[in-house]
Design a protein around this nucleic acid. Structure first.
Lengths: 235, 235
DNA sequence: GAAAATAATATGTCTGCACATAATATTCCT
DNA sequence: AGGAATATTATGTGCAGACATATTATTTTC
């Protein structure tokens, strides 16, 4: 069982990688107990704290399940988590080497429509900033966004210049959020067909995103991507 | 600047949470340097290693940028990464309190079509297992999957009983993967319309997933969800 | 004045030790 | 036998000290 570390430096990352390999290759099978920290420390020739750091990392990534006294076991269904970073549209477009352009289409103060108010836990009488805008890549429509912002939560938004900076970029910079939700679905382009220059029946990927500052809703955005768009991510 | 910890226990998580709050509330502004580890250790009245553990966690989460000698600064655009766990369809359905059912539709040995071969870096002459199946929730169609499996990479699959266990569940149990990719897009139901019992023009969410064992492709799956489906996740 | 050598600094990490905490195993008592 | 008290065990976390490493700042050299 020895021979995995050829006398190499015993950093906690190195130990994590060896353990990861053992999990992947099923040297440790799903559901089984792995040796305890003291034994592993002896095997790797390092301090127990170093093993502990490595195993904590794997547990945080969902590959191990650790419980005091019960020991450490390999997770049955290694809940593969895809980490999908949510880049600013600008960065996403520019990362592909394309030119980014932002075009504001509408800006008004209005009360929220029923579904928006409901999702944000509002009564419906609040003052909200309603913004529609189009994001372009190399001059072609890329994404149309329909956004509602709760003015009470982010008062400074009313004074923001949203002609050059997109509301999302402004919010990211000026208004941190504590949590939020996202929903992906496929819809017919419908009202977004005009700005996206596609057929109203064309299937488009739509993302609904809602963010919160503690119990106060910040914003509600529905994004409609151009029909050809594919959202890719690594596992 | 003191008074954040009322003499409470100084665990690294507590320190992380205090620092997180300072970032969120802009006590530390984006782009700015925060005090170094020694200073923070003095402030919190703990060892430097404890502060280090806390800051490493925040850096791993993307809130801080740390560099030797340069110090630690708050990330300009806290790249929020949504972690989307990829549950087995069975678990996803059952988590909603619905009955899960799996129905195999097709099973054949065939060479891969061009696009599949290209994405898996195959020549096109390989033996592959082609499987189509339908996943149902409470008796209604939920997802249709069209899967190609590289027999050379997973020889045992040819002997697997896929009439009761879905190929995905079999693969998760028997064949670990090293990495993979996912792509989301909106498409017209098309050929999936039959199994999903919807119009061929209905917009459906489609996920393309490819997994690898080192350089060898394992499987290529195209999943088509029922039109009403929304994929939700937390930020 | 430009390039090279040197110093200073902040983070990265390991070690050995101590004690805390949670969960299980064992013993003891009635 | 049943239940409560106690011991045992594996992980969780803290501490102080030491050295490694990357990067920037400073000084020296030609």
């Amino acid at each position: 069982m020895h021979g995995d570390l050829p006398g190499s430096p015993t950093t906690w990352q190195a130990i994590r990688d060896v353990m990861m390999r053992r999990i992947r290759t099923r040297a440790y099978t799903p559901g089984s107990l792995i040796p305890n920290e003291a034994e592993l420390a002896a095997e790797f020739g390092c301090a127990r704290a170093t093993v502990n750091r490595a195993l904590q990392d794997l547990a945080a990534s969902g590959f191990l399940d650790r419980r005091r006294k019960a020991g450490t076991r390999v997770m049955e269904a290694p809940r593969r988590k895809a980490t999908l970073d949510i880049p600013l549209i600008r960065n996403e477009v520019e990362a592909r080497g394309q030119d980014y352009e932002y075009r504001p289409l509408l800006r008004e103060i209005a009360p929220p429509p029923g579904p928006v108010a409901a999702r944000l836990h509002l009564s419906g009488g609040e003052t909200m900033l309603h913004v529609q805008s189009l994001h372009l890549a190399d001059g072609a429509p890329h994404m149309f966004e329909d956004r509602w912002i709760v003015v009470d939560t982010v008062p400074a938004i009313t004074g923001a210049d949203l002609t050059r900076l997109s509301p999302n970029e402004w919010l990211v910079r000026e208004s941190p959020y504590t949590h939020g939700t996202m929903e992906f679905q496929a819809v017919a382009a419908g009202a977004a067909a005009g700005p996206l220059a596609c057929a109203p029946t064309a299937p488009v990927l739509s993302i609904l995103r809602i963010t919160w500052m503690h119990e106060a809703a910040i914003t509600h955005v529905q994004e409609y991507f151009t029909p050809a768009f594919r959202l890719g991510l690594e596992l």
